[in-house]
Design a protein around this nucleic acid. Structure first.
Length: 732
DNA sequence: GAGCACTGC
């Protein structure tokens, strides 16, 4: 994947007709004739750039400066640095510039610094925002750039991510997550402190990045025609960004990476795990030493592959003189300790083989990888608006994704990539993956736009319009939650919901709890729900033991379900284990015993602290004395009150128990099963259930399930009540 | 009888 392969890629877009737009852009006159400018790279290892250098807090100005001088030598070798003047000329003379920089071009660290220098040189006001899709990236980049700039983190250069803000009044260059920039947009609608906004990793097309692009365009057409924007992207999706911003110029900077040779199957395979194992064995026999990274769609395939490999590896290396294969699984739900094993270099005549989900495609980098084995598959969550249901599908990846996966073998030296599909099938793959927003629930984005004051959501400056159906379902949902009135205007409740760092349904639960006086309990539960992978997946051998332990600890949870169980677990973690001197190791042991993520619970406490601060600000009428923190007991009145609060947000996510002990959803009458991870999986005596998630895999599963009484469905008062009532009566 | 990946003043 050198730049040469990309020479003609522009033509794939050539037949696309530019969409006609209703508005004339105020910046149109500045735009130059569109052309793609290429810069060539020099040969050099880019890892010098990313290796971490430590600055203590005690670092003096002089030592910071001399460190920055040393780093300047490294910076000067970067491809972007060598074309600094040309790049800056474009950025200076165009309102929007699209910059395509391959891995190792140094775009994320250097371009923001060039612009910062320019602001200083020209004595201009305002600061620079650089958005990232992930927290770690924002933190690492800011740390590195502060060193290069010769300043302490938080002085001229800082970062802002949830729970962690190092920026000060002096900060001129700010790395932040795109969720954070959206928050800032909600508070300060024209981003007046920034003169330049840089959107990095735009090709990943996360929902939040797409939303920011839309907001920036509408800002430029409205109150901020002076705003400068740089869209930075790794792959060639440049035309779409350029077109969106009225044919902004596209700059191309070559990166520094090594060649990766591609191999394809001659005939397709139908057993992907078997094919992956065979491929690894072949590499192990025929290729030089170097680690293998295998991409598989999900946990099931990964666990299976690891189990098979463990059995074969020892036998094979005893039979013939090949390296001993050491297999590792890697996926997000894996306990962090086990994830960490993947990064340790392996010594001796051995070969590390990592079986991974998409997590290793962008979020996690493993060094030492020389070979890629790519199943060509991934799992995606697709939201079905009509059913209010998420489906988890295994689908073929895109060409861009296949290239990204292959590229993982070329970070340190030349590599090889084995694609377990035919080349003809590769060519049939879509160029890019479908953007996330096209397959997501847009209730939350729609609420953001309403809060921002947009009336006509369908015709907003969407970078990618999710479609009328999705938007209408979002509006309907918000109306039923009481966030919008019957004219579609945002209500006071909606304003509050938009300000809370929660999905609208949970925000609505929180507001209800503040009204009926069980706020602190509900905050604890919602905090647990907000943390992914809090309860980890035990291995099949431990599974029954751990389920048993969890059940025996949570008496109320056993009867009322997962939400109450989460509160019981939180109470033990927070109150009972928090008291002793040795709280940390006690908590650690306890988490291990129950297969709970300790890091997860630490995050729960941070979310809880943040929510408590927000609630104090938002619901000032609430008397704090009545809201003192309390542990949950087994008082059924109190538990009913809490569950009814949840019912106001999740009235649509309810199902009724049938005589044959199955459940059918209230809204559509579809059969639904309690997920086996639920406390209520074995409990067959609930009159009804409420769940926070409805996911279709092999069948429809309810997750985070609670027991409800059918009479509650009629008590809950929201705009949605009428609908629910009608459904209940007609289903009887 | 089962769990793609991120993220929020």
């Amino acid at each position: 994947m050198t730049a040469n392969n990309n020479e003609n890629t522009g033509s794939q877009y050539a037949s696309k007709k530019p969409k006609t737009r209703r508005n004339v852009h105020p910046f149109k006159r500045d735009v130059r004739a569109k052309k793609v400018i290429r810069f060539n790279a020099t040969e050099e290892d880019d890892h010098a750039l990313y290796e971490r250098l430590r600055t203590g807090n005690t670092a003096t100005y002089k030592s910071l400066k001399s460190q920055a001088d040393d780093l300047l030598k490294v910076r000067k070798t970067l491809p972007v640095f060598q074309h600094k003047r040309e790049i800056m000329t474009y950025i200076e003379s165009n309102p929007v510039t699209v910059l395509i920089g391959e891995t190792g071009s140094g775009k994320s660290t250097q371009i923001p610094q060039f612009i910062l220098e320019q602001l200083y040189d020209k004595k201009k006001h305002g600061s620079i925002a650089v958005t990232q899709p992930r927290r770690v990236a924002a933190i690492n980049l800011a740390t590195r750039v502060a060193q290069e700039h010769g300043s302490k983190l938080g002085d001229q250069v800082g970062y802002s991510v949830r729970f962690d803000n190092t920026t000060t009044a002096r900060t001129r260059l700010k790395y932040l997550t795109d969720g954070m920039l959206l928050r800032e947009l909600m508070m300060n609608s024209d981003l007046k402190e920034y003169s330049v906004v840089i959107i990095d990793e735009a090709h990943e097309r996360t929902v939040l990045t797409d939303l920011i692009l839309g907001f920036l365009k509408s800002l430029m057409q409205g109150t901020r025609p002076d705003l400068r924007i740089v869209v930075m992207s790794a792959t060639l999706q440049a035309e779409k960004f350029s077109e969106f911003f009225d044919n902004a110029p596209i700059l191309f900077v070559e990166g520094r990476k090594f060649d990766v040779t591609q191999y394809y199957l001659k005939a397709p395979t139908d057993d992907i795990v078997d094919a992956v194992i065979r491929c690894c064995m072949q590499i192990n026999q025929g290729e030089q030493l170097g680690d293998i990274l295998c991409f598989l769609p999900g946990q099931e395939e990964i666990d299976k592959a690891v189990a098979i490999m463990e059995k074969i590896a020892k036998y094979v290396s005893e039979e013939s003189p090949v390296p001993l294969i050491v297999p590792y699984p890697l996926y997000a739900a894996l306990p962090p300790m086990q994830q960490a094993l993947v990064f340790a270099p392996i010594k001796g005549f051995k070969r590390k083989v990592v079986f991974s989900t998409n997590i290793a495609e962008t979020s996690v980098t493993i060094s030492g990888v020389k070979f890629i084995v790519d199943s060509g598959l991934r799992k995606v969550k697709v939201w079905r608006h009509q059913l209010g249901l998420a489906t988890l599908l295994t689908v073929p990846i895109s060409q861009a994704s296949a290239m990204q996966r292959s590229g993982r073998a070329g970070r340190e030296s030349e590599g090889k990539s084995f694609r377990l599909y035919c080349e003809s099938d590769y060519l049939k793959l879509p160029k890019q993956s479908e953007p996330e927003i096209a397959r997501s629930d847009v209730t939350s984005p729609v609420l953001m736009l309403k809060r921002y004051g947009i009336d006509d959501i369908v015709n907003w400056t969407w970078f990618e319009n999710p479609g009328k159906e999705a938007i209408v379902m979002g509006l309907q949902e918000l109306y039923e939650l009481g966030a919008l009135d019957n004219r579609g205007k945002i209500t006071k409740r909606g304003e509050q919901m938009a300000l809370l760092p929660l999905q609208p349904h949970l925000s609505s639960v929180l507001i209800k709890a503040s009204e009926v006086g069980c706020l602190s309990q509900v905050i604890d539960i919602i905090s647990c729900l907000s943390v992914e992978n809090l309860l980890l997946n035990p291995s099949p051998e431990e599974r029954d033991d751990i389920n048993e332990r969890r059940l025996s600890l949570c008496n109320a949870g056993k009867r009322y379900g997962d939400l109450i169980m989460l509160k019981e677990l939180f109470d033990i973690y927070f109150y009972e284990l928090g008291k002793s001197q040795d709280a940390n190791s006690e908590r650690n042991d306890w988490c291990k015993e129950l297969c709970i993520s300790l890091r997860g619970f630490k995050n729960v406490v941070r979310v809880r602290d943040q929510l408590r601060v927000y609630c104090k600000r938002l619901f000032s009428s609430i008397n704090e004395e009545n809201e003192e923190t309390r542990k949950i007991g087994e008082d059924s009145d109190e538990i009913s009150k809490i569950l009814k609060c949840f019912l106001t947000g999740f009235i649509k996510n309810t199902a009724i128990g049938m005589p044959d002990r199955s459940y059918r959803t209230v809204s559509t009458g579809e059969p639904i099963s309690v997920h086996p991870s639920s406390m209520l999986f074995l409990n067959k005596s609930c009159p009804g259930i409420m769940y926070t998630e409805y996911v279709f895999t092999t069948k429809g599963y309810a997750r985070n399930v609670s027991r409800i009484e059918l009479s509650w469905l009629q008590e809950v008062v929201t705009n949605g009540t009428a609908v629910a009532k009608q459904k209940i009566t007609s289903s009887k």
